[in-house]
Design a binder for these strands. Structure first.
Lengths: 209, 209, 209, 209
DNA sequence: TATGAATGAGACTTCATTCAT
DNA sequence: GATGAATGAAGTCTCATTCAT
């Protein structure tokens, strides 16, 4: 497993405390635009407009448009991997761990929909950019976290042994993260309910007993 | 339900028989590039290079880059809706129909991976382009086809009645179409096997009996 | 009569005081090129070269090449209509008003030869561009100003009553504005002398008494 | 005076009798488009469309788009100069000659409005194209024809001697040829009536006696 | 004669980025 | 920190023209 603890943020500029607030604001604005329109379709002028400054002024805060994407993804993926690691370490049975991972994922979608959407939608782009190889690395780590749980569950008898774990993992992953495309954080449906529904279907199947 | 039978292709240029072959070739090339690099990231020069002609020569065949995307999507979505309609009409129980839809979807991913990827990945872009409103229309129609089957299955007792059909549909949809992101048409895993795996998990659940 | 007082300039970008100077410079350069080479034959690169910047930099100041033409024509035609209105309102007899309009026209040619040439030469083009419908509107208003004077002069006995006012107006108009094709603002012939010659011929005719 | 009798048409292709008809058709179509939309704004595709053939097929008849313009203008200007020469030679007094030139001009506008419009509107363009220097040459010749008549009329006492002949000529020229911008060959107003109006105004002036 | 495919130059425009103020 | 002007590369598209069929 590749080591990804505490993702290094080498190029992040030195900042005073006050500045940090402005950076975070701008990153939030950028993340929303990137998620909504797509990274390539979002211009630095779009970001500047949304922030109430000229596009050129963004370069006082960030080195480039790509640097903004980098900071958003780095923060997100580091946190995601860490919180998954915590769950894996803190629960007993594979079934409890899997349920924890799933519930945490839906909570993450609720909390950081833009970063999730970015991660979901810009896969093709990120694969082409060498500076973003860490995304693939962390992705692999996360995949390993999930596969380990599934394999352990099959071995322990928690899960069926006639399903291919790798294929099963992908079905679960796509259903879970695909939720970002339709779930509304401020809508009627709570993310906990979405998780309940998913777990109920996943564990029990679609057919009545 | 909006009527979408035989999607009109009003602006397609008049063509003789021989021309059609060249158009189809160019569209296939464009579809692959659009799917692989993303529509925005693909330049007309990329397409021209891949086809062995100058980018400007593409405009002898198509009005614009957008027109190429349009023709690809229109053909694909029209065909998809039609083949789903055939399945709905030709089977008896909701369970048989659902299985048919799912198997057909995996077969479609096998046959037209580029168009499927396009439809999956460019949602944000298409929503911004007024000329592509028909995509949303056909999408709604297809959603209705699937929801009808799920509702009928719940009513008939084929499917569990304690799951929200709308949420369940989205989970299924995202798993099925998300397959385009990892399935390899020429790989070891056949699309029929993927369908078997999915149906087994969907119907029986992850837990052993 | 269509109302054309103070032509709206809705899309003109918000600008500070300093910026206005650069805009005006660029517009003057563009106007000269448009008038000399023709609008279509003038490339944005021509304009950039003449201004000492890259063509793309023009788009920092204007939305498009067409927007430059628009601003030139809008300013010119609004001013022309206004100055004619002032003359119509400020003089007594039709003969005095007509003389005022004619002298003002020659003075305008002297002062803004490029805008006049543009208005003269690009009629065919402007008729095709929907964004320039205001040109036709103001033209109609100006025609009405002149026709009113001619009609009043015929009624008052100032002018002959055996000439068709509409046809006469066109002869006068074409002679007057056609001057822009040969008059040289910095040449020996003063615009006042041109006006004298024209009025002498127009009022007295070519034949000796 | 430059000699311009029988303008040479060196590059005109050898043609059979039948072909000539098609050439003439195509030139008429091109002339109308050039006059209506402007030479630069007219594409060879426009011409092809109007003629019912593909743009590339035009090159079986003409060497280039410019060659079409050349043939139109060469025919027109040669004919114009010749018919003016006939008038100058065939009448007695300067007044009769001037009246002849003016009536002939209006008749020409009636008969060949497109060629006249071309000659009027594309002055800026033609000045830039070396292949069209003959246009300036014939223009000078025609100017000389008119100025000779005016000078002769002043000397003979037919015309007032207190008007500058050169300036007067330009006023007349612009009024006469400017008519092409508003006269409708198939309208109610006959070109003879336009000529009557113009001569009445020119000779008698605008003021009542 | 006409078609259909292609060329090659050049047009307008966009956009991330830089920098003096 | 922010502005406003400018850069330079790149993108989409147009169009006169050529040529094999």
């Amino acid at each position: 497993m590749a080591t990804t603890e505490s993702v290094p943020r080498s190029k992040r500029r030195a900042t005073s405390g006050k500045t940090q607030g402005r950076r975070a604001e701008l990153l939030a604005i950028a993340a929303e635009l990137f998620a909504t329109k797509g990274y390539t379709q979002t211009t630095v002028r779009d970001i500047g407009d949304a922030a109430g400054i000229l596009s050129g002024s963004l370069y006082h805060h960030f080195d480039s448009k790509e640097a903004m994407l980098d900071e958003i993804l780095r923060d997100f993926m580091g946190g995601l991997h860490a919180s998954f690691a915590e769950i894996v370490a803190g629960r007993d049975t594979p079934r409890e761990v899997l349920e924890g991972l799933i519930r945490s994922s839906f909570a993450t979608i609720h909390r950081s929909p833009h970063a999730v959407a970015l991660y979901q939608n810009e896969a093709a782009l990120l694969a082409h950019l060498p500076d973003f190889s860490y995304v693939a690395t962390i992705s692999s780590d996360i995949t390993a976290q999930w596969l380990d749980v599934l394999d352990a569950g099959v071995a322990s008898g928690d899960f069926r042994d006639d399903l291919d774990a790798r294929v099963t993992y992908r079905f679960i992953r796509d259903s879970v993260w695909g939720t970002v495309g339709w779930y509304k954080p401020h809508g009627e449906l709570a993310h906990e309910s979405v998780a309940d529904q998913f777990l109920s279907m996943l564990y029990g199947g679609l057919l009545p007993r």
